[in-house]
Amino acid sequence: MSPELSKFDQDIDLLINEASLAGATEVRRLAPGDIVVEKQMAAYCREPGCPNYGQSLSCPPHVAGPAAFAALQARSRAALVVRIEVPSAVLFSEERREVMRLLHEIVAGIERSAIARGYTGSRAFAGGSCKDLFCFDHPECQVLSQNGPCRNPEAARPSMSGFGVNVARTLENAGFTEPDKTRPAVQGHEAASWVAGMVLII
């Protein structure tokens, strides 16, 4: 192992530890080529239609989409997949926003730490719409409606689905093979489920 690779591995371990301390249930390193990107995933945001479509700068049609993600993927040295496990019922309750905001904050924190360590192109992505999570009490996204600054630039990160990431298949590739670690939440299902985010280390 070369000294440079050893330093990189040490940095990755530090980033994983930081994410765990910040509240992630589990963080796993993944080869960038194992991230599953499908154009159709991004298209689902428009049809059959997500209620958050077009509502923020971090969701379609305002994100660059699968082609842009593939370009970032090709430049990445590694990816970190972050998962927060919660009872499924939580994701259908008033606590959902709190969990999803924590997810955004964790991946944004990894992104900042990676950049501070010299991986200046690193990019974080998370599940959920930033408009719904951070600005649900505002009628419009300030960036889109007023060409103004984002109200939550330190925490809000773009949607993985909007970039075509097949989250369930990517989690499987990261080693989350148990059904409750790869299956999205189902209303009325009491077993543990999860929310997930990702950071490309570039």
Results as ranks from 00 to 15, higher is better:
Q55E: 14
S56Q: 06
S58L: 14
C59A: 10
C59F: 00
C59L: 07
C59Y: 01
C59R: 03
P60I: 09
P60T: 10
P60L: 07
P60Y: 05
H62T: 03
V63S: 08
V63Q: 04
V63P: 01
V63Y: 11
A64E: 13
A64H: 06
G65K: 11
G65W: 10
P66W: 02
P66Q: 08
P66H: 07
A67V: 14
A68H: 12
A68P: 00
A68K: 09
F69I: 11
A71R: 15
L72G: 01
Q73Y: 10
A74Y: 06
R75S: 12
R75M: 09
S76G: 11
S76M: 07
S76F: 07
R77S: 12
R77L: 12
R77Q: 14
A78K: 06
A79C: 13
A79H: 04
L80K: 04
L80W: 01
V81G: 04
V81W: 05
V82H: 03
V82Q: 04
R83L: 13
R83H: 06
I84C: 07
I84R: 01
E85Y: 01
E85M: 00
P87F: 04
S88Q: 04
A89C: 08
V90I: 13
L91S: 00
F92A: 10
F92C: 06
S93N: 04
S93C: 07
S93R: 09
E94I: 08
E94P: 05
E95G: 14
E95H: 12
E95D: 15
E95W: 08
R97Q: 13
R97H: 10
R97L: 13
R97Y: 11
E98R: 14
E98Q: 12
V99H: 05
M100F: 11
M100H: 11
M100R: 07
R101G: 03
L102H: 07
L102M: 13
L102C: 07
L102P: 01
L103V: 00
H104S: 00
H104G: 02
H104N: 03
E105Q: 14
I106C: 02
I106M: 02
I106D: 02
I106S: 01
I106F: 03
V107Y: 05
V107W: 01
I110C: 03
I110K: 00
I110H: 01
I110S: 00
I110Y: 00
I110M: 01
E111R: 14
E111G: 09
E111D: 11
E111C: 05
R112E: 12
A114V: 08
I115M: 12
I115T: 09
I115R: 14
R117F: 08
R117L: 15
G118L: 11
G118V: 13
G118N: 10
G118P: 10
Y119A: 02
Y119L: 02
Y119G: 01
Y119K: 04
T120H: 09
G121A: 05
G121C: 12
A124P: 02
F125N: 04
A126I: 06
A126F: 02
G127N: 03
G127T: 06
G128F: 03
S129A: 15
S129Y: 02
S129I: 10
S129C: 15
C130T: 15
C130G: 00
D132N: 13
L133K: 03
L133I: 15
L133W: 11
F134R: 02
F136A: 15
D137G: 06
P139H: 10
